[in-house]
Design a protein around this nucleic acid. Structure first.
Lengths: 223, 223
DNA sequence: CACCGGACTTTGACTAATCAAAGTTATTAT
DNA sequence: ATAATAACTTTGATTAGTCAAAGTCCGGTG
């Protein structure tokens, strides 16, 4: 059974690979920063994971998950995301705080309990942030959402996913009514001013101004 | 924050102290066996816990919790027992299997989540095996139940608690209808034959034969 | 083309938790 | 009272995970 440290490394490599669309070699520096360990620690750990055939390691260029490593990572991600949704739905926790809770529980929950949680929730496809939940077989349906930083002006869209887990940012979104499912359009965009203007379809106040960095973290789908 | 290893040692010392009614010094051998570590490991660990003022250690005679250690142990026990009940009530797990599940989760669940679980369950006093749940302040109302090995013959009693967590034993009890709340009387007892005869008040088959060791693990209260 | 600087790896050291085996102490039996 | 024995402690070693700091490699820039 892999330790929770191993599970965390694999999960993080998976997430970094996703974040680098296409470019699947994750640099050691990136990984070390994401894990908040020193680069030397990451190197040591990755050499052990490579020995166990969970990653392919290319010294001085980076690391990538093997099939086995990816399966394990998806299993961890499934536990994490089902737990997040369960904490919100069954225990009424705030969506801004469930990420950190799930971070601990994901290493302690058995397959049996996870199965029950999945049944309880009715086999959901996404977690409270719109992140897709891998199946028990380790499959994850690829999403391809545009963000508010790039979607066409005036196109009617719905918020599908928030690509950030920071409690403070999530609380701001909640306060502003920018939660998954909400319908809106981008009214204007000014790259010079680093500004995006939103119009919420069924809310008031209906107008909102965001920086590009924040807009890029809000993913949408056409309605 | 104490490691889960430390939490487990303290919890185990607490349980052993309880099991040795009155005699509050727990022998190292006993503790080592309960923790399934070698005696040397227990000695080393206990010296560290004594350094941290969580236990009082008397070399070559045993160990006992300090106030601080007891508070921590009760906190762990609270998490464990609330989780057991939650797994049964909210997720429909079998009472015979929740002990082992809770054993892992008890170290991963935050105070906030535990609070929500307690609310969800309506602040219960006992877990699915009848074991009392310490309060959030670290108080545990002392129980004083007799077992089926000692209660008066023909006295009408109700099962209050099962003093064993073995899945196989719990499954046997379930199959036999010997679960907390069930009303019964002891019809006969034969020490020579190591045998106890039970009559279940509202069940059929109403007659049951148990060995003394099994009967001693079933605690009852008068009705 | 040499060398500079940043990214990466190596090395040596540390902590927590563990075991095996040797050493010590106390209790019991003769 | 002494010897045998069981219970306990000590010692030396191991594994997982980590850091600090020294060493190495490589892609530019002059």
């Amino acid at each position: 059974m892999p330790s929770s440290t191993v599970e965390n490394y694999l999960k993080q490599i998976y997430l970094e690979q996703q974040a680098q669309q296409g470019h699947d070699l994750v640099a050691m520096g990136r990984l070390a920063a994401a894990m908040t360990v020193t680069p030397g620690t990451a190197t040591t750990m990755i050499k052990a994971l490579a020995e166990a055939n969970l990653v392919a390691y290319e010294p001085r260029s980076g690391v990538r998950l093997t099939r086995a490593g990816e399966q394990l990572a998806l299993h961890v991600l499934r536990r994490h995301r089902l737990l997040e949704l369960f904490l919100v739905k069954a225990l009424g926790l705030d969506w801004s705080e469930v990420h950190d809770e799930a971070e601990h529980l994901e290493h302690a929950v058995s397959d049996k309990v996870l199965q029950r949680i999945d049944d309880y929730l009715g086999h959901p496809a996404v977690d409270p942030h719109g992140d897709p939940i891998p199946t028990s077989k380790g499959k994850l349906v690829p999403q391809n959402h545009q963000s508010l930083a790039e979607v066409d002006l005036h196109r009617p869209v719905r918020i599908a996913r928030i690509a950030d887990q920071e409690p403070a940012f999530l609380q701001f979104l909640h306060k502003s009514g920018l939660t998954p499912g909400v319908a809106l359009t981008v009214q204007a965009r000014d790259p010079q001013a680093d500004n995006v203007q939103l119009k919420l379809t069924h809310k008031s106040p209906a107008l909102l101004s965001l920086g590009t960095a924040a807009a890029a973290k809000i993913l949408v789908e056409s309605t």
